[in-house]
């Protein structure tokens, strides 16, 4: 795991949460721009997945277990796309709120991933 990448995913997830939360506050559904934002965050998650798998096959063992790490990693990848699809069928402010909630969950998962991997050490 590259720490910078973990931080990047966490920060963009928080930004997406704030953006979609603001849309929900303004009583707006998710728009094209929000979906581009979701795509960017999701893309970063996929890059993180690939990097992590490469490092796992390279022989690194996460501090708190490989199975636990993989479960969190897959959860992180699924988070934003899943809530994005939810907001497609819920064209109200609540669709935006759902994406915001999913992004917050992603940010929390990133903190846990950092911890499980063995924070700081590469």
């Amino acid at each position: 795991m590259i720490d910078a990448l973990t931080i990047a995913v966490g920060v963009t997830a928080c930004a997406l949460a704030a953006w979609c939360g603001f849309a929900a506050y303004r009583n707006e559904p998710t728009k094209d721009w929000h979906f581009i934002g979701m795509a960017v965050v999701s893309l970063l998650c996929v890059v993180q997945l690939i990097v992590a798998i490469v490092q796992l096959t390279g022989g690194h063992t996460p501090d708190k277990g490989t199975a636990l790490f993989l479960a969190y990693l897959l959860g992180a990848v699924a988070c934003v796309p899943a809530t994005g699809f939810m907001s497609l069928s819920e064209r109200t402010r609540w669709g935006s709120a759902t994406v915001a909630a999913g992004s917050v969950v992603l940010a929390v998962l990133e903190v846990r991933l950092f911890d499980i991997w063995g924070g700081g050490s590469v």
């Binding site: 959860g75 809530t83 109200t92 669709g95 909630a101 999913g102």
Partner: peptide, 18 residues
């Protein structure tokens, strides 16, 4: 499961998986 219910479904879904 619509409106505010959609947010609840999402949160309950996340907690089910977790």
């Amino acid at each position: 499961g619509a409106g505010p219910g959609r947010l609840l479904v999402t949160l309950y879904g996340v907690f089910t998986v977790a």
